[in-house]
């Protein structure tokens, strides 16, 4: 049985990266508990607009947990406390209590400057991918699918790594602002496959160099990243990246 909830949304307002920013609050009345959290924010924005106020800005796109656009830090957890590993868009109002104040903040990291309110600039991740997160493929006739044998286990693990959607929750949760879980997943998805091996050393070095250049922090293995990752990436990826990087540097 669905029931209705009354909650208070305490949301972050900030005009651009240089602005100091502050919290504002809005009371939401009679929200059905099967409403998604983003839908509740849509309702809040309708009410704010109707009251002649500026709506609250936040990122979202597919709203089905696969695009990696939504990025809200809800009640102290990136993406909020969802049913299982999932993004903000998969968070439902039934996860909150009647009368609760829900605090909504942006990803706070020097690597992700605030564009407005809770919308942050995550192009740093794109730059890291551009630095080496690809394989150089010569075009031509496609190979037979079975020409390169890949153990099922490796293929599955590579797929798990590839399921990282680059949302940035790992950076948001990390007390060091480190992007290691993202970078390691993106290095791993290719390092585990034979097609990725020829450029593995170059890739690890280039992506880590770009990550450092963009000002992300040094990983200190607190595991906060894997605890909040909506795609359940593990720090085994980080160990693999360390291995790939050290091996590549020693082979220079």
């Amino acid at each position: 049985m669905a029931k209705n909830l009354n909650v208070t949304i305490k949301f972050w307002k900030q005009n651009g990266p240089k602005d100091k920013g502050h919290f504002e609050t809005h009371d939401l009345k009679n929200i059905p508990d099967d409403t998604s959290f983003l839908e509740a924010l849509d309702i809040m924005n309708e009410e704010l607009i109707a009251a002649g106020k500026e709506p609250f800005v936040f990122d979202h796109d597919c709203r089905e947990g696969i695009c990696g656009m939504c990025s809200l830090y809800i009640n102290g957890t990136p993406h909020g406390k969802t049913e299982r590993g999932a993004t903000t868009c998969q968070l439902y109002m039934r996860r909150f209590k009647e009368g609760e104040t829900i605090t909504v903040e942006p990803w706070r990291s020097a690597g992700f400057p605030v564009i407005k309110d809770c919308m942050v600039d995550r192009t740093a991740f794109d730059k890291i991918i551009q630095a080496g997160g690809y394989t150089t493929v010569r075009t031509g006739a496609p190979q037979d699918a079975n020409a390169i044998l890949i153990p099922k286990q490796d293929a599955d693990e590579a797929m798990d790594c590839a399921s990282c959607i680059g949302c940035g929750a790992c950076v948001a949760a990390c007390k060091n602002g480190s992007a290691m879980l993202f970078v390691s997943s993106k290095v791993s998805q290719l390092a585990l496959l034979p097609q990725g091996r020829p450029e593995a050393a170059k890739r690890a070095k280039a992506m880590v160099a770009k990550m450092d250049e963009l000002g992300f922090g040094n990983c200190t293995n607190t595991r906060a990243c894997e605890a909040v990752c909506p795609k359940c990436e593990t720090i085994a990826n980080i160990a693999r990246l360390n291995r790939e990087f050290i091996k590549a540097k020693l082979a220079d």
């Binding site: 919290f23 009640n75 605090t103 903040e105 706070r108 020097a110 060091n176 000002g215 992300f216 922090g217």
Partner: peptide, 10 residues
Amino acid sequence: KARGNNKYAV
């Protein structure tokens, strides 16, 4: 420095 100056409220 990487974490930035803004602290989380919660």
